[in-house]
């Protein structure tokens, strides 16, 4: 499917993505747009693992949440700058990803998913217990500070564009990873693992790198969230968050470049604009998801792609 896209189409895709992102804060609230971007990055990170390595992690909130808390701690208590705080958060998420990966990759399928979920619950427990996280209250009042010492991120437009730049860079890195020598091996493993082994590949090491990359990128989303929203809460490490991101990815279309972001946009928009309906939002989201899975398995973007390739 990748071959269908010419260089021109790819350029147009990036151009419209940039244009859309630049226009967004003038159309919707910057905070809303930042929330979408953070979650889109989170879902894209999961998609790297789920869609391209064929591994379902049910514990990705642990990476998002731990990075959010550590970034908050670094910025608020240790007085680190924005970039260093975020780098610390990402490093912790990556290290956690290495531990999760080493343990969970010993099993596959549903057992793999269950181990990631179990480990994520351990992280949740630690966050609840440790005093510096603020427990039920979460970590509040994380300073945004000044980017590189001069650009004041207190301004919500500045913060938005910083978030957007990070999102684009990460999104580019994910695309590059998929379309790299490593990405080729990953696809081979996903399609036929025994064959990849028979060609001499130590498949576990490739899966582990994919897992750590995905965890680090999920951590980047968490770090960005901590700075943009200025808080980290238990919701960021809770298992519901892990489930939600799987749902959004499937809704938009796993294994597609834009699918996760589209899924996030749909769900977050629904939650935001239907908020007046109260808890009915959850019911509506659930119903939409059930209909999508039953009728449109490939997700929104996946179905559109299938439609286009059938026509050409």
């Amino acid at each position: 499917m990748r071959r269908v896209w010419s260089g021109q189409a790819v350029f147009m895709g990036w151009a419209s993505l940039v244009a859309l992102g630049v226009a967004a804060p003038f159309v919707v609230y910057p905070v809303f747009a930042m929330n979408v971007l953070v979650m889109a990055l989170f879902a894209s990170a999961l998609n790297l693992l789920l869609g391209y390595a064929g591994l379902l992690s049910f514990g990705h909130a642990a990476f998002l949440g731990s990075a959010a808390y550590v970034t908050g701690l670094a910025a608020k208590t240790w007085g680190f700058g924005v970039l260093l705080s975020m780098a610390t958060g990402v490093a912790v998420a990556a290290a956690l990803g290495l531990v999760f990966g080493l343990l969970a990759l010993r099993r596959s399928g549903i057992y793999f998913a269950m181990i990631t979920l179990g480990l994520a619950q351990v992280v949740y427990f630690l966050v609840v217990q440790m005093p510096w996280t603020g427990g039920e209250d979460g970590l509040q009042g994380i300073p945004r500070g000044k980017l590189l010492g001069f650009l004041d991120l207190g301004d919500s437009f500045a913060m938005y564009f910083f978030t957007y730049a990070v999102f684009l860079a990460a999104f580019w890195l994910i695309q590059r990873t998929i379309d790299s020598p490593f990405g080729q091996v990953l696809r081979a493993i996903r399609e036929n693992e025994p064959r990849a082994i028979s060609l001499g590949y130590d498949v576990q090491r490739y899966k582990l790198l994919a897992f750590v990359l995905s965890a680090a990128l999920a951590g980047l989303a968490g770090s960005l969230k901590a700075i943009a929203m200025q808080f980290a809460t238990l919701g960021d490490v809770a298992w519901q968050r892990s489930g939600e991101v799987v749902l959004m990815t499937l809704l938009g279309g796993m294994g597609t470049v834009l699918g996760p972001s589209v899924g996030v946009l749909l769900v977050v928009t629904m939650e935001n604009y239907l908020a007046s309906l109260g808890s009915w939002v959850t019911v509506i989201t659930g119903a939409v998801f059930v209909v999508m899975v039953m009728a449109f398995r490939r997700g929104v973007v996946g179905e559109i792609q299938a439609l286009l390739s059938r026509r050409s």
Partner: peptide
């Protein structure tokens, strides 16, 4: 190419273009 690329030693390079 999957079979040929391993001896090339770049198979872990996720930052390199295909």
């Amino acid at each position: 190419r999957i079979a040929l690329q391993r001896p090339l030693g770049t198979s872990f390079r996720f930052w390199a273009p295909s």
